[in-house]
């Protein structure tokens, strides 16, 4: 990888969570938790499934399918079981709703 910086142009992600999701998935794969071919196979299946009803755009639909794939993989492996993921999501939601504007939002643990 070179150290030069990309010229400013089109942003690679539409929303910060898409970038976070992408990084999380790549990091898991790079840490050896799943191979990239295994990822693309699982992702391809979800895209196919979601695309059965209507053609998917390459933006919101695409990243939604990506998120569903990762949640499914992590639920299956037990690294982030569905119940646990829902609980932690609820903790974050409560934290955002109860933290005064401008203060850092944190959850316990």
């Amino acid at each position: 990888m070179t150290t030069e910086t990309a010229p400013t142009g089109t942003a690679p992600f539409d929303e910060p969570w898409q970038a976070q999701l992408f990084a999380l998935t790549v990091a898991l794969s790079e840490a050896g938790h799943f191979s990239w071919p295994a990822w693309t196979e699982a992702f391809g299946a979800v895209l196919k499934d979601h695309g059965a009803a209507r053609p998917l755009d390459g933006q919101g639909d695409y990243w939604n399918a990506w998120l569903v794939t990762l949640e499914h993989l992590l639920d299956g492996s037990g690294w982030a079981a569905r119940d646990e993921a829902e609980q932690v999501r609820a903790l974050w939601e409560d934290a955002y709703l109860s933290t005064p504007h401008g203060k850092p939002v944190r959850i316990a643990g």
């Binding site: 969570w17 976070q20 690294w79 999501r89």
Partner: peptide, 25 residues
Amino acid sequence: HSLLPSDPALRVKALETILTRKGLV
């Protein structure tokens, strides 16, 4: 209060929290 992130943003945050706590990433 702080602006509530979107549903997918909260789900990604939840995964990130769990995976970093467990030392998986």
